[in-house]
Design a protein around this nucleic acid. Structure first.
Lengths: 159, 159
DNA sequence: CACAATTAAGTTGTGCACAATTAAGTGGCT
DNA sequence: AGCCACTTAATTGTGCACAACTTAATTGTG
């Protein structure tokens, strides 16, 4: 009974390979970042938060979440860990007491210098050139957009 | 100081877009699976384990881990949850007492019928056709291979 | 045979992702 | 003013990923 007995069985096989490939690639990326970021004492999601802050300056948690597609359930503890490491400060906004603004500390800003070499090392780890990466990125963004829309409509139709 | 003042700053921007796209796509896929698999009472990694078992029959945890690139730290509790749901049984191998074989229960085997429609729904959620998916899958597998090799050599050079 | 090295699972601890809920602040509207 | 809807964070609980370690069984070698 392990052989593919019907067209549906082939679909199950194929399916495994589509989503599984993405899943595996994502974890492989994570593994490389884990090794490279260890020197900086960062995890990959923490590094993403710092990338946004380095690029755009201080932001409220809400804005961080929009850019990274993460909610407060993920960001709150993550930012607190960054604060514990002395890389950021959290400050309630004076204008809107609901909002918490995340500021880079001097130490957090300084870490950017040491992070500058990370992209090159990642790039070389992929073995891809700029054009290939750009192509893949475009494909993945297209996929994400389609999947997000589908999840919405699936969730809607499940109500 | 938010503007890109050097070539290195551009690298940081670019970098965010490569790995971040993959990260986002992986989570988007997970979101769609979450919605679709809710009816079956499965998470996406649990579904992956069942896919392997449906296709290849009973396997030791070790073999499952090789195919899914997961270690016992992830698989042990996951398989126990599947056992708790009545979908699999775990049995110590008689020949090698170290090995635990994961068997589908009748209920677990029967769930396959209801899972047959999942791939089509996922496929349609991506908005991609078979050729595009195959192309993307090939690219991702290539990426995973390169990244795994790089993580090895990075880890080696860090010693 | 004895003992070291290896192997398979499981356990522990940390961190991320996300659903669901809570708490507190804001703004509109009558 | 009083009330209601909405917004922003934080919290709680579940599950996955992975490193580090433990336990028990097996294999290899002298």
């Amino acid at each position: 009974m392990t052989a593919t007995a019907s067209p549906d069985a082939d679909w199950l096989r194929l399916d495994r390979q589509i989503c599984f490939s993405l899943h595996a690639a994502s974890r492989a990326f994570n593994g490389v970042y884990r090794v490279i970021l260890k020197d900086l004492g960062l995890t990959y999601p923490q590094y993403l938060v710092l990338l946004v802050l380095w690029e755009q300056g201080d932001l409220p948690v809400k804005k961080l979440g929009e850019q990274l597609r993460l909610d407060s359930g993920t960001l709150s503890p993550l930012v607190k860990r960054l604060e514990g490491a002395g890389l950021v400060r959290r400050e309630r906004s004076a204008e809107d007491e609901r909002s918490v603004r995340v500021h880079l500390t001097e130490e957090g800003a300084a870490l950017r210098e040491r992070a500058l070499e990370v992209p090159r090392r990642i790039m070389s780890a992929t073995g891809f050139d700029l054009a290939e990466i750009g192509e893949l990125r475009a494909r993945l963004d297209q996929l994400t957009t389609a999947l997000d829309a589908a999840a919405q409509s699936e969730a809607r139709s499940a109500r």
